[in-house]
C-alpha cells in the first residue's frame, strides 16, 4: 500500500517538474521551479545532480521515482 502511495506522489511531482509533459525533466525545468519553491537555484542544481544518477542531463520518471522513494520511505519508516 505504501508503495502505491509513493508511486502516485512520485508521478504527481514528476508532472509538476515536467510541466510541458515531455516525459523527462531537463535542468532548465528544475530551474523553473525556483519561482514556485522556496529553494535557491543552487539547491535545485544539487537536487537535479542528486537525482540524475547516470549523469546524462535528463531525469527519467524512473530516476525521479528512485530518488523520491528513498525520501518517502525514510519519512514513513523512522
Amino acid at each position: 500500500p505504501g508503495q502505491l502511495a509513493m508511486l502516485r506522489k512520485a508521478q504527481e511531482f514528476f508532472q509538476t517538474c515536467d510541466a510541458e509533459g515531455k516525459g523527462f525533466i531537463a535542468r532548465r525545468d528544475m530551474q523553473r521551479l525556483h519561482q514556485e519553491l522556496p529553494l535557491s537555484l543552487e539547491d535545485l542544481e544539487d537536487v537535479f545532480d542528486a537525482l540524475d544518477t547516470d549523469g546524462n542531463g535528463f531525469l527519467t520518471p524512473e530516476e525521479f521515482t528512485t530518488g523520491f522513494s528513498h525520501f518517502f520511505f525514510s519519512q514513513n519508516n523512522p
Binding site: T16, L37, L39, L44, V47, F68, F71
Partner: peptide
C-alpha cells in the same frame, strides 16, 4: 570520506526539495 559527506548533503537537499513540493501541493486548494 568526501563521498559520504556528499551523499548526506544530497539527501538533505532532496528532503528539502520534496518537502517543498509536498507543502506546495497541500498549500494550494
Amino acid at each position: 570520506d568526501p563521498n559520504m559527506k556528499a551523499g548526506a548533503t544530497s539527501e538533505g537537499v532532496l528532503a528539502n526539495f520534496f518537502n517543498s513540493l509536498l507543502s506546495k501541493k497541500t498549500g494550494s486548494p
